[in-house]
Design a protein around this nucleic acid. Structure first.
Length: 552
DNA sequence: TAAGAGTCAATAGG
DNA sequence: CCTATTGACTCTTA
């Protein structure tokens, strides 16, 4: 409960509006109570005794008529927010979500191109007011920093690697009576697919447990003690996710060892899954167990059952896209609530799904979550219902400080502040936007040298006037996206529909794709494929490039 | 250690 | 506001 209730609590302290009505964000009850019951937490905060000079510094023109009439230096405000976020390594997504109630894209926009105060409507001024309050309350800043760290700590990366590290982690469950024979069958547990499933299940169970705990609104404890706060984004899926995993295990057990019942475990985690309607398309479209090709009895060491889990990623993304469209749910909401990803990541995921076999553990997790989300119509309804309150809620969800001199915090950092990994923010370079010529030149070089040597990279960078890291990044990304688009079926359509697209891949690819979307193309073949695709128009590009380069 | 995978933030365009 | 794209980053993998 730490994260969200704290934030809400902060809001409640400083925003009378929020005291009245708390955002309905995480479907869980009890959080709103937390807000009201923990109201003595911050009053003694050391931060609250600081002065508020920084606030004044934003105000160009002090008037007697209250906040709304003050004129802020929005550019400076945005700059200071940016610096603060960078200094504390707080992402725009988190900041936008918890402080402004806006999406990452909007935050980026506001911070990069703040409109002058005088040109903002009252609604447009709202984020700046919130930013001002945020900056002026050191406690809010620190709180958000803690939130960000917690979110990072909770990332599946960590969980997965932790689990992978524990090579002899006991199987699935200690309180699930159905899994006792599984442990003996697959003791080694070293398989990746198995581990991710296991991880998800464990995480789901963990989240469920904590969710249960939060049902009891014992929120007057110091929030710090409630370490087990969920991110919320994963919560809607948790129950059925766990059930899903359970059912997979059950099914596989059934396949492998026919004495196990195919029914889903009656354990608590499976409850919601059991209530799901049996979807005949599910097996056809969604996941299928490829047990037929596998030996009837797998070796004990193989974690064989989960190795056979297979999801049709293309079908999943198609159905997710349709569902989102039909229900008018945005990628942002879906990403944040279901996958814990940003809008851009969701967009990528949905537009360019990789085949299951090409996915890493982490990549598979997203598709499992999507698949699971699709299984339960209630999830859609929940998201839909939440979407309705989302806008209103987001506007009210804010961290507004009382008084603290954040200027001091900023100034203390100076120009060369470093984040918690010791990386200096000053090292960050602004985003590079490659010109069409530069891109063509890079593509042209890619034709002949998809894996350019260091020397080539340096030469190219010098010729184009780019940083070498920009060039090598470009090659990494280009290869990666060529490969990705080679996987995804719809690319063909997209390319033909938009032959003039400025996408570096599609711009140079004109082709008819014949491989199956789930293609198991060998890498060598893929390379040849790419080469052929890209080779269209190479000559002209090359000529242009020569000209470009000679000009440089 | 280089390349790949997964993401993010910035940005373009609707 | 939304989605798609893309340069850059972090972490993992081979």
């Amino acid at each position: 409960m730490l994260l969200y209730s704290d934030v809400l609590y902060l809001c409640s302290l400083t925003d009378p509006v929020i005291q009245k009505e708390t955002p309905e964000f995480h479907h869980s009850t009890g959080k709103e109570e937390a807000l009201n019951e923990s109201s003595s937490f911050i009053s003694g905060s050391p931060a609250s005794s600081s002065s508020s000079l920084s606030v004044q510094s934003f105000i160009k023109e002090e008037t007697d008529s209250g906040d709304d009439e003050q004129e802020f230096d929005t550019a400076r405000l945005a700059q200071q927010v940016k610096e603060t976020l960078q200094r504390l390594n707080i992402g725009q997504r988190v900041f936008g979500h918890y402080v402004l109630g806006l999406s990452q894209g909007t935050v980026s926009d506001i911070l990069a191109r703040p409109k002058p105060w005088s040109k903002l409507t009252s609604r447009g001024r709202e984020p700046f007011l919130r930013m001002k309050h945020f900056l002026s309350n050191e406690h809010s800043i620190q709180m958000l920093s803690v939130i960000q760290e917690r979110l990072r700590d909770r990332s599946s990366d960590d969980v997965i690697s932790n689990i992978l590290d524990q090579s002899r982690l006991e199987m699935l469950d200690d309180d699930d009576d159905d899994d006792d024979d599984e442990g003996s069958r697959c003791q080694r547990g070293g398989d990746a697919s198995h581990d991710i499933i296991r991880n998800i299940l464990q995480q789901a169970k963990h989240e469920m447990q904590t969710q249960t705990q939060t049902q009891t609104p014992a929120m007057n404890d110091a929030p710090v003690q409630q370490e087990e706060e969920d991110y919320g984004t994963l919560e809607p899926s948790v129950q059925s996710l766990a059930g899903f995993v359970q059912s997979i295990i059950q099914k596989v057990k059934c396949e492998i060892n026919e004495d196990a019942e195919p029914s889903v475990s009656p354990s608590s985690v499976s409850r919601s899954f059991q209530t799901l309607p049996a979807d005949p398309d599910q097996t056809a479209q969604g996941f299928k167990m490829e047990t037929r090709q596998r030996p009837r009895s797998c070796p004990i060491s193989g974690s064989c059952e989960l190795q056979s889990l297979h999801l049709d990623t293309f079908s999943i993304t198609q159905r997710v896209k349709e569902t989102l469209t039909v229900n008018n749910i945005g990628q942002r909401v879906f990403g944040e609530e279901v996958l814990g990803l940003t809008q851009s990541s969701v967009s990528e995921l949905l537009s360019h799904p990789k085949p299951w076999t090409k996915l890493s553990l982490k990549g598979k997790e997203n598709f499992i979550r999507m698949h699971l989300w699709l299984q339960d119509p209630q999830n859609i309804q929940k998201l839909n219902a939440m979407k309705k309150t989302d806008h209103r809620a987001r506007l009210k969800r804010a961290l507004i400080g009382s008084d603290c001199d954040s200027q001091r915090c900023l100034d203390a950092g100076g120009q060369g502040f470093c984040d918690r990994w010791g990386r200096c923010e000053a090292m960050k370079r602004p985003r590079v936007i490659l010109s069409a010529q530069e891109r063509e030149a890079l593509i042209a070089v890619y034709q002949t040298e998809p894996y350019p040597s260091q020397h080539t990279i340096e030469t190219l960078a010098a010729q184009l006037g780019l940083h070498t890291s920009t060039v090598s990044n470009w090659f990494y990304n280009y290869r990666s996206r060529i490969r990705r688009d080679g996987f995804s079926e719809p690319v063909q359509t997209r390319i033909f529909q938009n032959p003039t697209s400025c996408s570096p891949v599609s711009a140079s690819l004109v082709r008819i794709k014949q491989e199956p979307s789930d293609g198991e193309m060998e890498d060598a073949d893929l390379q040849r494929e790419e080469h052929n695709h890209v080779s269209v128009g190479v000559q002209s590009v090359k000529r242009e490039k020569d000209e470009d380069l000679s000009e440089l």
